[in-house]
Amino acid sequence: MRRLARWLSAAATLALAACAGLPPGEWGYPSTDPLPQRAERTDAPFHPQEVYQCGPAALATALGSAGIRRSPEELTNEVYIPARQGSLQPEMLAAVRRSGAVAYRLAAQPRALLKELAAGHPVVVLQNLRFDWAPQWHYAVAVGYDLPARQVVLRSGREKRLVMDLDDFDRSWAKSGRWAFVALPPERLPATAVEADYVAAAVALERVAPAAAERAYRSALGTWPNNLVARIGFGNTAYRRGELDAAEAAFRQAAADHPESGDAWNNLAQVLHERGQRTAAREAAKRAVAIGGPRLPAYRRTLEGIPGG
């Protein structure tokens, strides 16, 4: 028994030594892109966590900071999984969208986290508070940092202002592959926004909250006016609201910026047709059919739906 115990403890020590996930991250910052020494969203709301409910609590904090009031109790119905006693990452993002905010995944780098915090955007992080072989997964919200003191400030569990050493925090965060996201109102771009990723986040939002997605498309187009998906998305959301003027303008712009896009011509054709501009509609639909591609059958149906010609 004693030998077994010794063996087990040795095994445990080994496992402990081998528990690092990603290598230590780079928390320094190049002088070309300086960040403030410290930043903190002191007004980020705090929701003390009930048993197993760190997911809903973290969501409520992040959404509250974005000006969207949702209680952890409500959010529990959207993310909590009884048999797992916790919440899964995709569902955390989905709950943000259901609340009408953009869920934006950060690059797995300390700098991305710091940049968002410097912009006043609290960041939901997934940590493993224990070992790789016996993980304790935990969602917390980073609300600030202090680089000279090497500290990260979190709303975590029952701690309203948990101050963690940067290295300790990084170790726990690295074990989740530095998984993190921000939840922002559609008018506000993440500080680290990348064009394709942000537009993809807006597209994901369109399914559950089209009005919010329309605003997100507008934000995207403000920075990347040439983005085809955002332009068509904006047109589609306007169309769905019955704003044919705005939809036509968006599809026209999309077709002008991307004359090779059959989708743009097809959608323009449909709107023109509904507005009684038959000839122009047929012209546009023919362009779409001529371009072809995987959605050629849909373009053909559009063309066939326009009488005359």
Partner: peptide, 30 residues
Amino acid sequence: AATDRVAALDQQEIHALAQRIDSMPAGGNI
């Protein structure tokens, strides 16, 4: 609730869950 929750997921997320819902970390508590 399950129907609504699935409806809020995008295609990639559904795919990821379908592949490894059991092994995916569930942030909760001890």
